[in-house]
Amino acid sequence: MYEGKTVFVNGGKSAETLIKSLMHNGGMPADKIHVVNEKLAGTLAQTCGLTEAVKYPDAMYGADIVIVDASAGASSVIPPLSVWLKEEAVVLFLDADEPLEQLIALVGGHGCAAQAVLSPLAAVGRGYSGIVPSAACGEAQIGAVVSLLEGIGKTMVLEEGRLPVFRALSKAEPALYLSLLTAMGDAGVYVGFNREDARSVTMENMLVTAKLLQETGKHPLEITDTWTSPSGVTIEALYETYKTCYEKIVLEGVEAALAQPGAAPK
């Protein structure tokens, strides 16, 4: 568990999710979290037992990680934090679309900064958070950010150029899996199961598949090869999979997720 002083300066959906998940899944005690934004602090006081909002500039003194939630939008005014921060403090921008350089300028040029994209699964302590540290961040600062975000799942440190790809996939993949779960529920009912059984069997299949691939380290097709017997059910299912171009359908979904909004479809 991260034990440094963590300050949230503004409030948005991402900050709220992060705080709740840090407390719920990461075991971070309420007194370790400081919130400047009064509205967010008020909400969290009711739901998470946080104490009242802290104020500038006292909140910034001794802060190790200062979190700015870009999802709060343009209405959220950030003062030039750099004048109050110690040199080794990291400013962490959540779910920002702007380049890191631009974000650093927004808080008065504090060079030790990072961007993070949170997973939509963060609420349950799962998924990857993608982290892009600035060049001024040393190992200690990167380690601190990683340690903080490991409280809400796994982390992947990336170069800035790859963050959009990470963002698109980490947002789209859960939606694609949920589509499979929805469709298998309907398919199960169609062939004669009740919906609850169809869904729970599918969820179990999903969990087992993930575990199997993680624990064996094998290629998916190495595993599916062991499931097929001559003229059996699985090879028939595989044949149908090829006939319906299943992978192509999913791949086009991935491509749509990776495309720029408003871009002409391929």
Binding site: L121, Y128, L178, M203, L207, A210
Partner: peptide
């Protein structure tokens, strides 16, 4: 894989 298992946990 993390998203796969995590999605089930979320549901």
């Amino acid at each position: 894989l993390e998203n796969l298992a995590g999605t089930v946990d979320l549901v």
